[in-house]
Every structure is written in structure tokens, then in C-alpha cells.
Design a protein around this nucleic acid. Structure first.
Lengths: 255, 255
DNA sequence: ATGCATTTGTTCGTATGTATC
DNA sequence: AGATACATACGAACAAATGCA
């Protein structure tokens, strides 16, 4: 008959109203919110309450405010920082492990390549080729440039897949993975061989995308991730990932 | 030579300290934080500043405070609510459409079924069977019970896949999809036929999971989602989804 | 079951450093 | 360069809510 109620704080209502305004487009990125003093009259609450609401919105990456700015808090363009933060803390809390992350990445990045193989334009193909050549060029010199071009290559794949959600998911998962084991990788002894191998694998994937072979692109991408990161996993965890490597014979894993 | 600096607010430092304490285990779920007045002396700041920090931690789902509680704010168990919220707002940010969502869901839920087919235990299998029968039982009577059992079925699949991240992703995407087009579905004329059809499809997926046929489970799940929601999409969008329906012959789509 | 002490939710006032016009 | 308006931060205060004796 009756619904249970939760006492709702004043600042929550303010957050909801501002979030709603951003959501429905009445507040677009770059626009300014009224000053805190203005907001306290509009909402009919005290300054502290307004500030608590603004803090929450700020921690969600939706607005930013600077002292002394006469224009008031600014509405930020959409960003994935909140997603980033919440996923990182899940990882830190060990609710999600490296194996979970890699398995998920094999799924999403694999599917991204599958879609990219179908929908890529020739311009995108050229851009991928360029990114790959930049990777090759910076193997011997610049570790940072290599990593940058690597990211660029994956971004181009995700973009070619034409799914914004997939794009964001790939981006977040990739960076969280790196954040977890970057040190181990850069400290590895045969770093240069690893980089060269990575180039070779990227070339294979690119070939499949060029040939518009979605299944090959997907499986190569998954295999790449698996073999690149498998050394950092326990044996039990490796088994969870191999399931996604069906190889060319799809039904082989039933036996 | 020098790094650019960002002015750091007092409340941010407090948030970092408390987050750190939760992370490294000195604050475990269920434990209480000191009262606000105690915290202001410990951190050497005013009460407002302490409260701003607590609001942020609260919006991140890490602590909760009730008025009048002499024990102070409580440290919450790790939860995925923060991830939930940030993913929802990502979807609402118009950059992601229904087609993106469904395509993504076909990927993740497909893979979840694939993994579940391999790793499911017999107990989990029985639980899935039970959920399916509950769905069948409530077709004619209770729309809410049907939806509930439907969710339970999918949750069991995700749980059997043994990947917490995948579990959360599926949950979020599913709820956002529903939130987007629930009305259209419940208003549909032949609602009962739809529900019966849904049961039939779930049974097919369950058969594949029981037979430990990962590829069949994956493709059936994807096909189910596609055919269930395709009527609500434009024709151009439908094309983006069909790519993921390779059918039984994996290489057929190259031709 | 009833007060009592304490805590949170919220308000108001004030001082200080800062960014913009 | 100065004036203005701003955010940051502090402190005191009151009402409502909670837990405990």
C-alpha cells in the first residue's frame, strides 16, 4: 500500500535539478551556472547547502568552479573521469581483478575490431596505417611516443566501430589495465622485443580490418591481448581467458 | 623542469585521506568514522569543510551518515552503485543512442552466455531453470513478477560467467535499456505473446548453457536481444546490429 | 517508556585571497 | 591599477533526529 521513504537532503534536490538541466540540454557544456550567492536565492537555501551540492557535482566531473571567477561555475563537457574513478576503486577494492579486466577487454576490444572490419572507411584505414608506422618508428627511441601511438591505433579502431559506448568502455578498461601493471611491463627485460612483437600483431589485425574479415580481426585482437598479458596472470586465471580464444575452428572447444 | 600545479582544496585532501584509509584496510565496511566535530579537530579544519568531504564520499557510495547518529558516519561495503551512476549518466548524455546500447548489450550479454556455458555449475543451472519456470508461471498473472524473474535469470547467467565486471556492465546496460523503452514495450498490443516468446528463447539459451555449447549460447543470446528490440530501431541502425549475428557458419559474412 | 546528551542538517555572518573588468 | 564580485574557509547557532541510560 505505502512505499518506504528515505529522508531526502536539500543538497540532493539541488544536485538532481542541476543534473537534470544538464541532461535535458538546458545547460550545455561551457555554459556557466549562477554564482553561489545567486544559487542560494534561487534554491532558497543557505550557502553551505549550495556548496555541498556543487562539491558533489564537481566530484562527478560535471561542473568546475574557481575562486574569484565572476562568471560562476562552468558546466564541463562530458568526460569519463567519473567512470574511470569508480572502476579504479572497484579494482583497488579487489572486487574486480586483473583477470576480470583482461577478460572484459578481450570481449570489448575483440568486438570493436569485428565491427571496425565491417564499417571502416578508407580514410580510417589510412590513419590506422599511419599510427602503426609511428609505433614502428618510435620502438628504438621514444617509449612515450610508442605508447601514445599505440593508444591512437586502438582509438581509431574503436572509432571505426561507430559505437560511442564501446569506444568509452575500451578506453576506460585499457587505461585501468595499464595503471595496474604498467610498471611490470616497462621494467621487463626484453622491452624492445615486446614492442616489436606488438607492432607485428597490430599489423596482422590491421590486415584483417583491411580485408574486411570481421571474425579474423576479432580473434586476432583477442589473441593479442591474451598473449601479451598472460605472463602476468596465475595459471587458474589463464584458463578463464582461453575460453574466448576459439581459434578458427569455432566448435573445437566443446571437445 | 617544473610541473604545473592545480590548487588543491582542503576537502579534497580529507577525501583522499579517508579513501586511502578505506583502501588500505584501516577502515573496513561497517566501521564508523568519528563524528563531524571530531573530524574537524583531527583534520584541523572547519565543520563545513569536513561536511563537503563527507558529501563527496557519500556520493561515491563509500560512507553514509544519518542525522543524530552518535556513532558517526558508517563505512559502506564496496558496491557498484558509483559505476552504475556514472554509466547511466554517460548514456543519458545523448552521445549514446539506443542502437549503441543494444549493440553493446549484444556483445556483453552474448559473451556472458558464452562464458556461462563453460563455467556454470549444476547448482547454477538448476537456479536458472527455476527462474525460467517462474517466468512461465507469471506470464498470465503478474507483469512485475515476470520482469523480476527475467532479471534474475540474466543475473544468474552473469554470475555463472564469473566476471564481476561483466556482471556489473550487463546489469547497468540492461537497466538503462529498459529505462529507455520500457513504456513502449508494456504498451505493446500482444504483450502476452511477447512474454511467451521470451520464455521460449530463454529456454533455448538455457539448453545451450546446459549442453556447454558456448558458441550456440552466445549466438542465441545475441539473436534474442536483436529480434526482441529490433522493432524499436530505424532501418539504418538495424544494419549495425546484424553484423554481430554471424549465425552458425562463422565465415559466411565474408562473402 | 521518557528524558537527556549528542549528532547531523541547515542557516547566517565574517574574513581572506583571487580573478575579471 | 583599482574596484568589484567571487570562491574558499572559518565559526557560531538552532532545529530535528538519534541512541542510551
Amino acid at each position: 500500500m505505502f512505499e518506504p521513504v528515505r529522508p531526502v537532503r536539500a543538497y540532493e534536490l539541488i544536485v538532481q535539478q542541476i543534473e537534470g538541466a544538464i541532461f535535458d540540454g538546458s545547460l550545455t557544456p561551457g555554459m556557466r551556472l549562477p554564482s553561489e550567492r545567486e544559487l542560494m536565492t534561487q534554491f532558497g537555501v543557505s550557502r553551505s547547502t549550495v556548496r555541498e551540492a556543487l562539491r558533489v557535482l564537481q566530484s562527478e566531473g560535471k561542473v568546475a568552479s574557481r575562486p574569484g571567477d565572476p562568471h560562476g561555475p562552468v558546466v564541463l563537457p562530458f568526460s569519463t573521469t567519473a567512470l574511470h574513478k569508480s572502476m579504479s576503486s572497484l579494482v583497488r577494492a579487489e572486487t574486480v581483478g586483473l583477470a576480470d579486466l583482461l577478460q572484459f577487454r578481450m570481449m570489448t576490444e575483440g568486438c570493436a575490431n569485428q565491427l571496425a572490419a565491417v564499417f571502416r572507411t578508407s580514410q580510417q584505414l589510412a590513419a590506422m596505417q599511419a599510427a602503426l608506422e609511428k609505433m614502428r618508428a618510435s620502438v628504438k627511441q621514444d617509449e612515450a611516443a610508442f605508447a601514445y601511438s599505440d593508444v591512437a591505433f586502438h582509438d581509431l579502431i574503436a572509432e571505426a566501430a561507430r559505437n560511442k559506448l564501446l569506444q568509452v568502455a575500451n578506453d576506460v578498461v585499457r587505461s585501468v589495465v595499464l595503471q595496474l601493471i604498467q610498471r611490470k611491463i616497462t621494467q621487463s627485460a626484453d622491452r624492445e622485443a615486446q614492442m616489436l612483437d606488438s607492432c607485428r600483431r597490430h599489423a596482422l589485425v590491421l590486415d584483417a580490418v583491411r580485408a574486411q574479415d570481421p571474425v579474423a580481426a576479432r580473434q586476432l585482437a583477442r589473441k593479442h591481448i591474451f598473449e601479451y598479458y598472460a605472463p602476468y596472470l596465475d595459471e587458474a586465471e589463464v584458463g578463464r581467458l582461453t575460453v574466448l580464444l576459439e581459434g578458427s575452428a569455432e566448435s573445437a572447444d566443446i571437445a
